[in-house]
Computed example of a mutant assay.
Amino acid sequence: MPESPALAAPPALRTVDFDFALPERLIAQQPARPRDAARLLLVRPDGPEDRLIQDLPGLLGPGDVLVVNDTRVIPARLHARRGEAVLEILLNRAEGGGTWQALVRNARRLRPGDTLAIEGAPDLAPRVVDRLADGTVRLDFGPDQAVLAAALERAGEIPLPPYIARPEGPRPEDREDYQAIFASRPGAVAAPTASLHFTDRLLAAIEARGVRRATVTLHVGAGTFLPLRGDDPRAHRLHAEWGEVTPEAADLINAARPEGGRIIAIGTTALRLLETAAQGVEDPLRPVRPFRGLTDIFLLPGHRFRAADALLTNFHLPKSTLFMLVCAFAGTARMQAAYRHAIGEDYRFYSYGDASLLFRAEDPAP
């Protein structure tokens, strides 16, 4: 007797199945100028279509709701010393009261109670609280958030991904280039990069089409830079990130489908937050509820998406959690074909690269 679909085992997943050959020359080292001059790959069920970001308004319609992430990247990379030991600190997530979780290079040298000297910010002396099982370090910067914010602006660096080559450190223009037009709530250590393509001109054209915009917040953490290790992606754990979907944003998102519109996530961060806010909601027409807190949701093939009909996202790296996410959303075979096309047509990859517009697969199986 055939196994009931409700009882069927989830599809086997292997990290190697999400690998592909990506020429290093296609990893963008600077953004398109102007931002909306980037290319856009429209990924349809019948095959990919080459477009431009400037074509996006014509692909949207009245009643559609764009969901954008308003997180703002902070200069989260600091250089420090503990005695003779040289350290590099990448802030990850604020815990409140002046305490942050951070990734620290040479963390094995640290002990609880150690005080660190921050280069370029002598008034900042974080104390090591403890080291956590996931390898992060808890640092206490003191209760005065204004002191920390000023020190970060003075001594911190914009934490560009390691794939963007800056041997001498980030360039001055990276502080603006790596910040989205929607950025308003400080707290991220990585940009929601799909949003980097938007300009005032593009937003005006989108609004003229009768498209509305809902704003949510997900403070992207340092874990987004961590590689996926091991043969089974399900064994990977994402670092928790803080997010919020306000009641007002939830109402606007939930109005889309009843009015014949679509919910369009601008970036994987918005999509992950939407799917978090959809957990436990039974109404497919009104799929999200207000949410405020931490999420470590990991979206893999086999996940049934509930809260977005389309996704605008950049091109991601081989064997990355984000490539797995887009395969989950649009279908693995479809995305593998789309990426082969993108590589063959010299699309630019990753944070400063081009974008793709994906539509949710009817069947999420890989």
Rank of each mutant, 00 (worst) to 15 (best):
N106V: 03
L78K: 07
R111T: 08
A107D: 11
A121C: 12
V67G: 10
T136K: 04
R108A: 08
I89V: 14
A85M: 07
A80S: 13
V68Y: 01
R138K: 05
L124T: 09
G96A: 05
R111P: 14
T71L: 00
D64G: 12
G113E: 08
L124A: 08
L91E: 12
N92V: 00
G135K: 07
H79A: 15
H79S: 15
D70N: 08
H79F: 15
A121S: 12
H79G: 15
L139H: 04
P112S: 03
R82S: 13
E84I: 04
A107F: 02
D64I: 11
A107H: 12
A102M: 07
P112F: 09
A117E: 11
R81P: 12
H79D: 11
L116F: 10
D64W: 03
A76L: 10
G113Y: 09
E84C: 05
R72I: 01
Q101K: 07
N106A: 14
G63E: 03
D64H: 13
R109P: 10
G135M: 01
N106L: 01
L78V: 10
G83R: 08
D114C: 08
R81T: 11
G98D: 09
G120R: 06
L139R: 01
V68Q: 04
A85T: 14
V137H: 09
L78F: 09
R93C: 02
V68T: 08
P75Y: 06
G120D: 12
R82T: 02
L116T: 05
Q101P: 00
A121N: 11
A133F: 10
Q101D: 15
R105F: 05
T71V: 03
G98N: 12
L110K: 04
E95C: 00
L90A: 09
A117Y: 00
R82Q: 14
R131E: 07
P112R: 00
A133Y: 09
V68G: 09
A76C: 07
R108I: 01
P126V: 03
R111H: 15
L139P: 01
A76T: 12
